[in-house]
Amino acid sequence: MATIIQLSPIHTPSLRIFSSHSSQNTPSLSFYLPAKALTFPSISLKPYTTAKPRALVVTSAVKSLSETELVPVPAEADEIAGKLPADTGVYAVFDQNGELQFVGLSRNIAASVLTHRKSLPELCYSVKVGVVDEPDRAVLTQSWKSWMEEHIKATGKVPPGNESGNATWVRQPPRKKPDLRLTPGRHVQLTVPLEELIDRLVKENKVVAFIKGSRSAPLCGFSQRVVGILENQGVDYESVDVLDEEYNSGLRETLKKYSNWPTFPQIFVNGELLGGCDILTSMQEKGELAGVFKK
């Protein structure tokens, strides 16, 4: 709905140019533009503003912060499923002493909380979550705002993680590891057979994915899906681009023989071939992957 409202002011000015006399219906439409612009981008986190009664009463899509149940954050990724929703909404993170540290909004609450838990285990002890069924950004922002305001009103403080300039909880852009190269270059004579290099690589690294293209830009749909699944599982894995003719020359044929597997991608765990894209996908669907990567 919101998009329609946003669009209409764009259309109305041109209408008005053509028929300035029939402007009866346009003001009501264009009125939305300034009103809307005021609603959300300018939330002030200063405690002072909260004394002011909420002028713009938009019914919050979530329960109030105090009414929401506090849930301990599981330590392991596979325990989070089921306990926290992978849905859009707001979440409030509490430390071990029950102090509110941060209020965030997310398109996938479970994933966001998991990320916090991993990067800030000591601050991310338990959470309250409020799922917002309406995927509209404004509703989401409003829910976040209502929790923030409730907390500020109750304590007079902004949660430390939400103070301006505090970047503790800001998601760090995922650092993509570079793909591994098996050889120093095509024209360098190998002193060790390629097969042995593969063998060492898969045995010295817990999870290795041989893919087409790089992990940041896979060149085949199956490789892309594999990278997606591994990233999704939060697995620390190494990747090798089998199409890299400069640094992995001859790898495709050698690897096919080494693993007795004719296609790519190939995923190795603890030196053993786990399988290709189909197997990884099917294991993910059955929830078997976390166990495999934990060992």
């Binding site: 004719p262 296609t263 786990l274 189909d278 197997i279 099917s282």
Partner: peptide, 27 residues
């Protein structure tokens, strides 16, 4: 295991994989 099952399929189709069959999505 799944790996063994897929290998059985690949083994049966070894000639095809040699001659241009590129990828299989296997259930």
């Amino acid at each position: 295991s799944l790996v063994k099952r897929h290998r059985m399929v690949y083994d049966a189709l070894a000639d095809e994989l040699q001659s241009g069959l590129h990828a299989l999505s296997i259930v």
